[in-house]
Design a protein around this nucleic acid. Sequence first.
DNA 1: ACCTTAAAGCAACATCATTGCGTTCCGCCC
DNA 2: GGGCGGAACGCAATGATGTTGCTTTAAGGT
Lengths: 190, 190
Amino acid sequence: MSPKPMARPGGRSARVQEAVHAAVRELEAEQGRAKLTVPAVAARAGVTPSTIYRRWGDLQELLSDVAVERLRPEEPPSDHGALHADLTAWARQFLDEMASPPGRAYVRDALLGDPDGSNAGQCSAYAAGQVETILARALDRGETAPPVETVMDLVVAPMMYRILFRPDPLTAAYADHLVETALAAPEESA
Amino acid sequence: MSPKPMARPGGRSARVQEAVHAAVRELEAEQGRAKLTVPAVAARAGVTPSTIYRRWGDLQELLSDVAVERLRPEEPPSDHGALHADLTAWARQFLDEMASPPGRAYVRDALLGDPDGSNAGQCSAYAAGQVETILARALDRGETAPPVETVMDLVVAPMMYRILFRPDPLTAAYADHLVETALAAPEESA
DNA sequence: ACCTTAAAGCAACATCATTGCGTTCCGCCC
DNA sequence: GGGCGGAACGCAATGATGTTGCTTTAAGGT
């Protein structure tokens, strides 16, 4: 649901949506979240506040929308020629991005203004898609690979849990450890 | 940080805090979250809105505060005489409570109004404490038990991840599966 | 019992959220 | 290609919420 279902996808609506999203990114970068308010975003985007309220409902939903867009992976995971190397590299990068202060903020925002959970589902789908790509490549090479669900449970979930629920810093070594566990696990799954 | 650090713990401050918390619970039960607003809570609690704004900052922090209180376990996990049975029973109950609509709401609230992450950390600490109790009992009996961190990573984290990021319903069988995995894991950890 | 001071009350003010109505412009069909 | 229907936007007024300085109360220490 990143871009809300637009009955009128082209032209002005699209321009407004882009302008508003850009305004959010700019204001966030310039003044931080505290100064982010619907009227402020509207002014920067050259739109009236009522437009934003009508399209997004409130600030949280708008931020959630923007956050999900930022969390969308921009390219498929890099190919290192072997499952273990691919997964390790991906997990490290994922942890790095998500555990960073901006990453944490995006995740929180995505979860926040999301009454039906569709934005959060989208985030999970992004990660699952990346993992899926890595595993499919491994199978293509003739390697044995665990199911996606196993990797989600053993690698992605622990990282996200710690990011959300624990203040402690996280290291690449932790990501490596989780990958080891996942690849050592029996091949069946939930 | 459930009860904010009160320089004046006794007497009126305590009464006000309790009244406000009670007002939140009542209004939430009576009218749902949509109608929950700071002035409304203040009116029900018999306080002025400014008191709430000063003590909690905004509605989200107040809700986070109340949510954490509700997530505090009320009793130690039940003792079934064996590690496997104890963990399975606890995991099922935990999943049941957290995956329910009110449970999801509390978790989200707790994460939400929590700039420094201390409330979220408290939630995690509650779960870790319960697990710790179960594992300590097992060791007392002479059973071998994995470290707390392993159980957090292999049982708690996957459940919370799915609760937060996926709309799909979760079953007791899933909790059982996670416990199996955790108890089958090698004894070392992160 | 007094003094100190954190915390609550009060009230005015600023800002934000909401809504009805008129206008614009997209997308479609003739 | 020109007009038609309707969705989305702009504008402006209104009500609700968030914010702040000053005053008053009462808890806790001396």
